[in-house]
Write a protein that binds this DNA or RNA. Sequence first.
DNA 1: GAGGCAGAACTACATTTGTAATCGACAGGG
DNA 2: CCCTGTCGATTACAAATGTAGTTCTGCCTC
Lengths: 121, 121
Amino acid sequence: MERIAEGEYAVMEVLWDEAPLTAADVAARVPEDRGWSLATVKTMLSRLLAKGVLTHEEDGRRYLYRPAIRREDYVAEESGRLIDRMFGGRVPALVAQLAARDKLTPADIAEIEKLLKELKS
Amino acid sequence: MERIAEGEYAVMEVLWDEAPLTAADVAARVPEDRGWSLATVKTMLSRLLAKGVLTHEEDGRRYLYRPAIRREDYVAEESGRLIDRMFGGRVPALVAQLAARDKLTPADIAEIEKLLKELKS
DNA sequence: GAGGCAGAACTACATTTGTAATCGACAGGG
DNA sequence: CCCTGTCGATTACAAATGTAGTTCTGCCTC
């Protein structure tokens, strides 16, 4: 699976949330703070098509875009990559790091414990 | 803190592992499979210096390089970024994802549970 | 003391990414 | 039927990245 750049990812997010959409629809849904023009969004869409992570179908004179890969799959790949690179593939090392940085609220801890308990059953 | 590119990161790893080192030493320690020439490593070192994440001190005619930022800090920032982007900042969502993908061995689970238990004390 | 080697500094060049502008085709409104 | 707005396609261009090569300058060796 091709790598998706940071900016491109914002477009994927939109389409993972709702698809199919026209280019204009995507542009309208991209987070405001990107400050992108429609042209920029169209460039992103072309590149994502070229990378094979989007498909398009014709709808009259326009295209409707939709993701060709599942969000879960991409997210899994990216997090795996990070865990491999930064934590030697060891998930507990990641959790330890988060803990050391106070990134875990008591609610998070409870939730994770619950998850793990269910896993073992 | 400046963003460190993927390739540059490999150089940082070397120096986090052992420092200070000369450019040649770094080159010798970069993972084989990168297939980098000494020149490439030197370019990386310059760019990392420019980004302010390395420092160098003179050692006669050469430089000795050492990290200017701590590995833990960088790793914390990067993992935070990923968790924000892909999991809406929710760590339990990340753990759930790993679980769903069978990325957690029973040993991992036990280790994480132990970590969390200690956190609560 | 001249030649060569080792270092850093500078230069090079393709690809990817961010961020558009422009072009050519066509559909719909008047 | 023609104008104009809308589409996708093509082109643009700077910054970051990957991956070196080249140059200049001393130090070491013979």
